[in-house]
Nucleic acid binder design. Structure first.
Lengths: 343, 343
DNA sequence: TTGTATGCGTTATCAG
DNA sequence: CTGATAACGCATACAA
């Protein structure tokens, strides 16, 4: 029988049990172990073990002004990208002694706002944000209050802060060149409404640039997952035109959710063997990509999460410097869907 | 310009600004609004707005002993099941005014232990656990200390607490009957090592029971995702035997990760049109199930998460009752993979 | 080397 | 109705 009942031991209990003052306990806890006599140290150890004492982080944080809490706002955990970034964040937090306070907006924009409020309330020391649609001012509150902010995947207009994400231009260029190299005459870039999300915007622009530079044929289709019909119809038109003209057309999805939606549509259109009849690739290497034999760009998600925490950590350690931008390279994973001999 | 600089306003600042005492501010914050004169109330409101004041949850928690924090320990966020449960948890927490402290063990058993420690340290009011391999004693610490525990998906030997999950016997029976109804002569139930995980154990047992009751042919293959070769070989043997004998055999994966692994294997074995050549179904309706045309049992994941929080909430409100068990029904989602006319 | 006193931001107790 | 004042659990300046 270790624990008493109902109430966790406090530092005072430990002090009494060890027959000393709270200060010594506090010293022991904070590793100022050299300042303690071996005897006292032993008594303290014993007392802690006996009472199963765990220092109260809340009280600790209240006193010293930092509670080791880091806010992590995710737009959509349903997107494997987010989960992977999260893994990196967690690992880095653990290594650096932080505790991530994970907030999942589930694609709801006011959830996002509410969570941001909550994070304020819990006095997180810093925030990592993969935002859906927060406005610059909301985050300003943090940085203005001395709470560093790191953006992930996308930047926010009017807000200058550290940001880490995929090197979109390079990634899109890599992918587009691959398609052209494989002999596709026409490429359809499919992306969610992109005006307001920087990463989508950059990807779309990079696509047009690359296609242009290569002198190849290509166009963009905007797919709104909340109203898919128009985009799917547009895709069909292109597919049919291509079939008529006898050209080879490739579909390039700007991220995993889009890829899934398009894949489902292709399956509906061509049947179970749609993979033999259409060429689809995408950014984001989701778990079913291998199963579908789909070529992808794999994002360095884990590193993105890790870097984000490191950025935060540096600021928290007092580093004073202009906003940084860390763009990590994506990796082309070639699978059957875009093979030259395919169509 | 709302906020000052560097330091968030405290209740004292607000009191000074409003020309009153801290007590009144506290009263205002806690909704004891009827006890305040309209005039004072207005001044307080103004002061709060002007200073952009946010009460400090840490201090609050320290004082009143509850910080509205709920620990949520997840074994593996890579499993869509977990993410979906999480959605339910988050929604319920939000509705009830709790903040979930999400801990992702990422399939590492000592991560799990460390996180459990951390949760203690942050004095969470309750914990929801989807455990990988924690031992009963670790959780005992919580319940013994008056911190309620709710188990999700699986129970833990030697620990009696509230638990919520899928009604596995019913779900497996439903699935197995479906397969037999569709005319399969033989069913291969594929499951990860199941001795130590109650949900897997129950599913396997339910499978044998149902197959027996139906007088049908069936057997179990144990697939260890860390050492897949033996299981995959075993599957191949069965597949070949079935082909020779000319019988119809179905593969029944006990969860999504297993289903994915098996699907990949089938693709390797049969090529891109493996879906036409093999019949695979699974528990867990992952996002690619529709794409692969795979029949599944969809778990009521969202409700599972919601119920877990509700259970916790009731305990936190002081409900005193024996441990409860909430088993929610799964839903059979029939797709092409198990259609009668298939093979 | 050790202990005392004070305060972190809130709420609760008790007087006015 | 309102406002001092004492805790909550801990860390730290200071004293011993």
């Amino acid at each position: 029988m270790i624990a008493s009942a109902e109430r966790r031991a406090t530092i005072t209990d430990v002090a009494r049990e060890a027959g000393t003052g709270k200060t010594s306990i506090s010293r022991y806890l904070n590793g100022e172990t050299s300042v303690l006599s071996p005897d006292l140290r032993e008594r303290i150890e014993a007392a802690i073990a006996k009472l199963d004492y765990r220092p109260n982080q809340m009280a600790r944080g209240l006193k010293r002004g930092r509670n080791r809490l880091i806010g992590m706002l995710l737009a959509d955990l349903t997107n494997p990208y987010s989960v992977e970034v999260l893994q990196g964040v967690e690992a880095a937090c653990h290594a650096l002694g932080y505790m991530p306070l994970i907030c999942h907006a589930a694609n709801e924009i006011d959830m996002e706002r509410r969570y941001l409020q909550l994070l304020t309330t819990y006095r997180v020391e810093g925030v990592i944000v993969n935002a859906l649609g927060v406005k610059e001012e909301l985050l300003q509150t943090f940085s203005r209050g001395g709470v560093p902010v790191v953006l992930v995947d996308r930047s926010i207009e009017g807000l200058v802060t550290d940001m880490v994400g995929l090197d979109n231009p390079a990634a899109v260029s890599l992918a587009t060149r691959h398609l052209v190299d494989e002999g596709f005459d026409d490429v359809l870039f499919i992306v969610q409404p992109f005006r307001r999300i920087s990463s989508r915007r950059v990807r779309e622009a990079a696509f047009r640039d690359t296609i242009g530079a290569l002198g190849a044929q290509g166009s963009t289709v905007v797919l709104d997952l909340a109203d898919e019909a128009p985009a799917l119809a547009a895709i069909d038109v292109q597919l049919e035109a291509s079939e008529e003209k006898g050209t080879r057309i490739a579909l390039f999805a700007a991220n995993a959710p889009v890829a899934l939606r398009v894949a489902l549509h292709l399956k509906e259109r061509y049947g179970a063997d749609w993979q033999q009849r259409a060429a689809l690739m995408s950014i984001d290497d989701s778990e079913w990509a291998e199963l579908a034999g789909m070529t992808t760009i794999r994002q360095p998600t884990y590193d993105i999460g890790r870097r984000a925490v490191e950025f935060l950590h540096e600021r928290l350690e007092g580093a004073r410097m202009p906003a940084r931008e860390c763009l990590l390279p994506g990796e082309l994973v070639v699978r059957a869907s875009t093979r030259r001999d395919k169509l």
